[in-house]
Simulated scan of single mutants.
Amino acid sequence: MVLCSNILNAVGWPYWVFFLLSLIMICCVFYLRERHIRQTSTKEISRQQQLVYLEMHAFQAQMDPHFIFNSLNAIHHYILTTSTDLASLYLTRFARLMRLIIRNCNREWVNLEEDIEALELYLQLEQLRFGTQFDYELEVTPDVFQQLTFVPPLIIQPYIQEAIWRRLLLRPTKTGGCLRIRISREDEMISVRIEDNGINQGPPAEDTHLSQGITIATARLEAINEQYNMRSGITERELYNEMQQPSGHLVIISMQQMASREAVM
């Protein structure tokens, strides 16, 4: 107190000026702190709203009316021309896929086993429709613990759908298409490798349903990266044979592994 009094006497300030300046400084500190809290809260609310918006549109992209109509039409064709048992099998798979999509659309994380089940059901239904136009292989390496590994739903399927519709079905021979999906673990990352031998048709139109699905999947992955401070990304490249001729397309989706305890919090 004596030191403050000596300082005030030295500069010629009365006590009330000192206390007024102190009060102003304290008010400024509290104001800046409150503004920072409000900005942080607003940013978090905006991020959550963006994620909900993207999840809703991802669900809409998955519930493609053309896919639903064509799948039911193919099942109806089996009922009339082939086998009711086979038609019943595919109808059961279709119902299971719809249930998984609807259930997962409101979940930020699902275990990898459920996501792979939805992928296989989707691939089986597409193969029902297109027969010998393409075959697929889906491999999960033993070091990936499917029930304990959590991933964002509705991320992988748009890229598989794009590979089928934009490349494999456009092969001139209409046979021999091959789609390989390999899910492996690389340190703390889950790597999803999607390779096809389809025909590259150049950059897609931005207003198509498939493009919207890809755009939404990429945006959701970026939003999840920001929210959880994760390292995830998507890379694509064309494949060439020994003659340097285009031979296919490769997509690699890398997602940081989410432990089960963290995913359910």
Rank of each mutant, 00 (worst) to 15 (best):
N241M: 13
Q147C: 12
F134W: 06
M56A: 13
P14R: 09
N225Q: 06
L20I: 13
C178G: 07
R107Q: 12
I24Q: 14
L20V: 14
F150P: 02
V264N: 04
R171M: 12
F94T: 05
M25D: 07
L169K: 06
Q212P: 00
Q256A: 04
F18R: 05
S41T: 12
S41P: 11
K43W: 14
L23D: 05
R103C: 00
G176T: 02
G177D: 06
N229G: 15
V17G: 02
N225P: 01
E226F: 05
N70C: 00
N241Q: 12
E206P: 05
T218S: 07
D64Q: 03
D143C: 03
A259I: 01
Q201T: 12
Q244G: 09
S254R: 15
I252L: 14
I26W: 03
L125F: 02
E262C: 12
L80F: 10
T42S: 15
D115A: 09
L239Y: 15
N229P: 11
S22M: 11
E262S: 12
F94V: 01
Y122W: 04
A58G: 10
L119D: 07
P158M: 11
L72S: 09
I253Q: 09
L32Q: 10
F18D: 04
Y136H: 10
E34Y: 12
P158L: 12
V11Y: 15
Q256L: 04
F59I: 01
I234D: 10
A10T: 05
R171L: 13
I181H: 08
R237F: 10
P14N: 09
R193W: 00
L148W: 11
D135K: 04
H76F: 07
L250Y: 08
Q201C: 12
N70A: 00
F134R: 02
I79T: 03
I199S: 05
V2N: 15
L8Y: 03
A74F: 06
T40G: 09
E186P: 00
G12V: 00
Y90P: 00
V110E: 03
Y228G: 05
N200Y: 13
F19I: 01
T218W: 02
L32S: 11
R185G: 03
S232Q: 08
T42K: 15
L80Y: 09
M255V: 01
Q146K: 15
F134C: 03
L169Y: 06
L168Y: 06
N197P: 03
N70S: 04
Y15H: 07
Y136L: 07
I75H: 06
H209R: 07
T175Q: 14
Y136M: 10
E186Q: 07
I75A: 10
L168G: 05
L100W: 05
E34K: 13
P172D: 13
V29E: 11
L23I: 03
P172S: 10
L221F: 01
D196W: 13
E120H: 08
V11Q: 07
L119E: 08
T175C: 09
V29R: 11
I190L: 14
G176D: 07
